[in-house]
């Protein structure tokens, strides 16, 4: 399986609000960040949560967002935040 994204890629988190169990925090949805690293491949927690296998494994990315991107303005200009996100939640980002 090939990973869709690589370190340094700009990615945008899908703006989606499914009612079930997901591991993508609300506050990063629709936000754009940079892939810091590929953290491995893991079975899909959205499936595991309901007793299914969650195969095939999904790529998990560490994605960095600036605090300004997340909140409009952060406490200090350089501050940022890294979240682990599964590939099904990411699309190519721009800018």
């Amino acid at each position: 399986m090939t990973d869709r994204f690589r370190t340094g890629d700009r990615v945008r988190v899908r703006t989606a609000f499914p009612p079930g169990h997901v591991r993508t925090p609300f506050y990063v949805r629709g936000k754009t960040g940079d892939v810091v690293s590929v953290a491995g491949h893991y079975h899909d927690p959205e499936e595991l949560a309901y007793g299914r296998r969650g195969a095939p494994a999904l790529a998990l990315y560490r994605v960095r967002f600036t605090q300004d991107e997340l909140w409009g303005s952060g406490e200090a200009p350089g501050d940022d935040l890294v979240v682990d996100l599964y590939e099904n939640w990411l699309e190519a980002g721009h800018g």
């Binding site: 993508t24 927690p45 998990l60 406490e75 350089g78 501050d79 890294v82 682990d84």
Partner: peptide
């Protein structure tokens, strides 16, 4: 100090 970057890690997944 504001020159120090504060980097938050939200452990959302398998790490």
């Amino acid at each position: 100090p504001t020159e120090t970057v504060v980097r938050v890690h939200d452990s959302t997944a398998d790490l």
